[in-house]
Design a protein around this nucleic acid. Structure first.
Lengths: 232, 232
DNA sequence: CGGACTTTTGAAGTAATTCAAGGGGAGTGG
DNA sequence: CCACTCCCCTTGAATTACTTCAAAAGTCCG
């Protein structure tokens, strides 16, 4: 009798988890659906923040861009995660750009709907605090890594983080489950695509990774951990 | 008839703002007071996160330390701000170390007291979401700066951020209102104290800043903005 | 006045970027 | 099915921004 196939997804979502079923129904009724093809932009940095999105399927990438056009990748968003947190936090514009890196399907609701859900269901507000606390903490760690580690370690940490977040076990190792270019990795690790290419190549020679166009497979994750954590 | 001198401070605080007066009284009754001398540690990275603190007077510094001992400065905490956000976000240990950099006076409450306040007063949860959203956003910007800017710009941005957050206008310019070493600035900008020293020296020669032991005054903030934002 | 910490400054070293050029895969359209 | 084109990736060489190393000079405080 699952009249609405999205219900389970929202019920288990990191933000809306814990809302009573009738509340979920109301929320879904007020929500819209959206499909994005790989490469499509969900919203841009500076756009008015009027909607909150919940990714059902696919993969999104959130970036921060400098006035001169240089950008970094803030995070990748996977199924069950939200994009557009700023409408919860009272921001009026999106602080970054979110783009689909795979064909994606998402649910979107208006900002005031999301904020009302927080007012009405304390559990949603608590979820939001937990979620933002986790993201804040992640950023603290990344900032430290970027400040104190050398490039090879940073690339290692970036890959391990991706593997942990969305790695798919295969017979040959852990595969990053979406198209990932050298440039993307560079924007995660704070370096250039050239250095990433060279580093990956060296690792490939040592049998640690296996990579091709827009694709990376970790063959020896433990070796990568050793590299990433290596202080020497 | 201000029987309790801390009341106003808590009432106006970024987290507890909006709680009805009787609720504030209960909160204060359950809270402890603490004094720290410059250099004292409030809590250390890895400590059990069992308390939330509200700074009344003084200045704190939050740092993130790597296993090998290298550290960066996450933020400085000024009067009216909180330290120990992680107890709100459900973390069990503090993700960083907080140290007093000036003689400080603070109010502390137990984690469950703070969490109960969030449950009971939706406005507190909303404040927490806003607060964490702002910090998360700040970190995004810093991460981008650290990734894409060169040292001189980063030092500039670090100083401007400090000036904005806790600069004191004086006749000679904007003074950073607490003891700030070259090493501290280095840990904010992701560089070494040597580079900071050289950079500050060069700026001093150009009349942009005025600095001494543990002290920096911005004489020409606009010139610093130009340097910090300069893409060339 | 001694001692600890902070800051300055030169010189050497280097990790990583920048510059430059070419190769390869995937998709497209004829 | 082949040729064309657009990205993406690789790789060498030159450059450089910044760190590291080393030493000395201030500055504060007891």
């Amino acid at each position: 009798m699952d009249c609405c196939p999205d219900l389970d997804l929202v019920a288990g979502n990191e933000l809306f988890r814990g809302i009573p079923v009738d509340g979920l129904g109301a929320l879904l009724a007020a929500a819209g659906r959206k499909r994005l093809a790989s490469g499509d932009v969900l919203f841009r940095q500076g756009d008015a923040a009027d909607s909150l999105f919940l990714l059902i399927e696919g993969r999104l990438r959130a970036t921060q861009t400098a006035p001169d056009g240089q950008q970094i990748i803030i995070r990748y968003v996977g199924p069950g995660e939200i994009a557009g947190y700023t409408v919860l936090a009272g921001g009026d514009v999106h602080p970054g750009t979110v783009t689909a890196v795979d064909d994606s399907y998402l649910i979107g609701c208006r900002g005031d709907t999301a904020r009302r859900a927080m007012e009405r269901y304390p559990v949603v507000a608590r979820n939001a605090v937990i979620l933002l606390g986790r993201r804040y903490h992640e950023m603290q760690v990344r900032l430290r890594e970027l400040s104190t580690e050398r490039v090879e370690q940073r690339i290692g940490h970036a890959l391990l983080r991706l593997a942990h977040q969305c790695g798919r076990r295969t017979m040959s190792g852990i595969e990053i489950a979406f198209p990932l270019s050298r440039q993307d990795l560079a924007e995660m690790a704070g370096t250039t695509l050239h250095t990433v290419s060279r580093t990956l190549r060296a690792w490939e020679e040592r049998g640690i990774v296996d990579c091709g166009r827009l694709r990376v497979i970790l063959r020896k994750p433990h070796a990568l951990v050793a590299i990433a954590d290596d202080g020497s």
